[in-house]
């Protein structure tokens, strides 16, 4: 069985003021610092992300949002000279423990990137990629699971006749939903989204946002976005980051209507 256990009794201290009381936690970072070579990118971050909710990360460019995201699926491991201190828990288990299988961790924590990155294969093969890693061979089951994932990503109706076409021929918005379908196909529990709508036109963005809200029922989503309206529209909770630190974390409503800090307010209202 998987070495990751579900959230257990070793859950960490909840965030300020009983904000997440009664909620299971999907992701947790405690005293997390990250260095690229000599440069400090994250500074003593503590953050909890609840299960089956959408949590948005906002903040100025270069404040470390994407780097924080990549700590949760250990994608920072791929970067040479990258050093991490502190603790990261994914679904209640230390993600950086020596006996953790990184591929399995990444399978459970899906990720969607800023730039749509479909593989230069057919639409169907893209979605089946992760399934093949699990050793799935039966055409029937593959087709079935591909369809399920594409439906879940709201793409099925558009590509049902083009499953054998190259994925590179889809529009950017379709590519981004294809990538989400690809991630959903391996049945992750958490989705990390790194500015998924920043390269899309307004209509595609709208569809993507609808999709995110729909996904909320079954997945825990951590969303990095530059778009304030987007965060306000889809997120249940919002964290404001600046200079590698989480300055404020609260329900989205309160962050946008009544932020505690001046910096958050300035950023939200566009003064920063």
């Amino acid at each position: 069985m998987s070495r990751l256990r579900l959230a257990g009794a070793d859950g960490l201290q909840p965030m300020p003021g009983g904000l997440l009381d009664g909620l299971e936690l999907a992701l947790q970072a405690r005293a997390l610092s990250l260095h690229y070579a000599e440069r400090r990118v994250l500074d003593q971050i503590s953050l909890s992300v609840p299960r089956r909710r959408i949590t948005a990360l906002i903040g100025p460019s270069g404040c470390g949002k994407s780097s924080l995201l990549r700590c949760f699926n250990r994608l920072n491991d791929e970067i040479a000279d990258c050093r991490m201190d502190g603790e990261v828990q994914v679904l209640g288990v230390d993600a950086y423990a020596a006996d953790v299988s990184v591929p399995d961790l990444r399978r459970r924590v899906g990720m969607v990137f800023q730039k749509p990155n479909p593989f230069p294969q057919s639409v169907g093969e893209n979605v089946a990629f992760g399934l093949r890693l699990a050793g799935l061979r039966s055409r029937l089951e593959l087709d079935d699971r591909v369809e399920t994932a594409l439906r879940a990503a709201g793409l099925w109706d558009e590509v049902r006749d083009r499953l054998d076409d190259s994925a590179l021929r889809l529009s950017a918005g379709q590519q981004q939903r294809l990538v989400i379908a690809r991630a959903l196909a391996v049945e992750p529990e958490v989705l990390l989204m790194d500015e998924p709508a920043s390269m899309l036109d307004p209509i595609s963005t709208l569809r993507l946002e609808e999709l995110m809200v729909a996904l909320r029922e079954r997945y825990s989503v951590l969303l990095v976005t530059h778009n304030m309206q987007q965060a306000a529209r889809v997120a249940d909770y919002t964290a404001y980051m600046q200079d590698g630190r989480v300055l404020e974390f609260d329900t989205t409503d309160r962050i946008f209507t009544n932020p505690r800090l001046r910096g958050t307010e300035d950023y939200i209202t566009g003064k920063l």
Binding site: N73, L75, E78, P103, D104, L105, R106, R107, R108, G110, M111, F113, K115, N117, P118, F119, P120, F129, G130, L133, V179, R182, A183, V186
Partner: peptide, 14 residues
Amino acid sequence: PAGLRQGALALGAT
């Protein structure tokens, strides 16, 4: 492109 590598790794590929 780095995006393709990261995409594959993020899906849990070794």
